[in-house]
Simulated assay, not measured.
Amino acid sequence: MAVKAATQKRAQRIRRQIRKVAGDRPRLSVHRSSKHIYAQIIDDGKGHTLAAASTLEKDLKGSLKTGADIAAATAIGKLIAERAGKAGVKEVVFDRGAYIYHGRVKALAEAAREGGLSF
């Protein structure tokens, strides 16, 4: 099995488990690449993105050393929590995708919790 297919299969398995426990809560989805990290809060019932943040944003890009470290993930976690609060979201379900809960993904999740999100 190709690496991409295995990654997609793992992400779908995680999403299937999340749907069982989510109820009506939106999903905080995380994507990381070798250079950046992205976070979205998605309402799966309506199929809309309620809030989003990434290291590609101009105001963050200048203040971060790189978009691919724990400091950047922490900044994105705080920013997504702030934007979720403005959108009226307090409780979410964390979707780590195919990534293990470690390093940048863990830093983003902990910063989002400190910012006021509950999951």
Results as ranks from 00 to 15, higher is better:
G77A: 04
M1F: 01
A68H: 13
A6W: 08
G67A: 05
A5N: 12
K90S: 11
Y99Q: 07
R96V: 06
R25E: 07
H31I: 15
E114M: 07
R25T: 04
G88Q: 05
F119M: 02
A11R: 06
R19G: 09
E82F: 13
K86T: 14
I100V: 09
I100L: 15
F119Q: 00
S29L: 14
K78F: 11
L28C: 10
K65A: 14
K65Y: 04
K106Q: 08
G88R: 03
A72H: 07
R83F: 07
I37A: 02
S63G: 05
R96W: 04
E110A: 04
I37T: 14
K35W: 03
G77N: 08
D44M: 12
G67R: 00
Q12W: 06
A22H: 04
A53M: 04
E57A: 14
L117T: 10
H102R: 02
A73Y: 05
P26A: 06
Y101A: 11
E91M: 12
A72W: 08
R96D: 01
G115R: 06
G67P: 02
S29Q: 15
V105K: 02
Y101G: 10
A98W: 07
A84P: 02
A2I: 13
E110S: 05
R25A: 13
T49F: 13
S63W: 07
S118C: 12
Q12I: 09
P26Y: 09
A87P: 01
G97V: 01
I14M: 13
S54P: 10
L108C: 01
I18V: 15
I14Q: 15
K58N: 11
K4C: 04
Y101V: 09
K35F: 03
K90P: 00
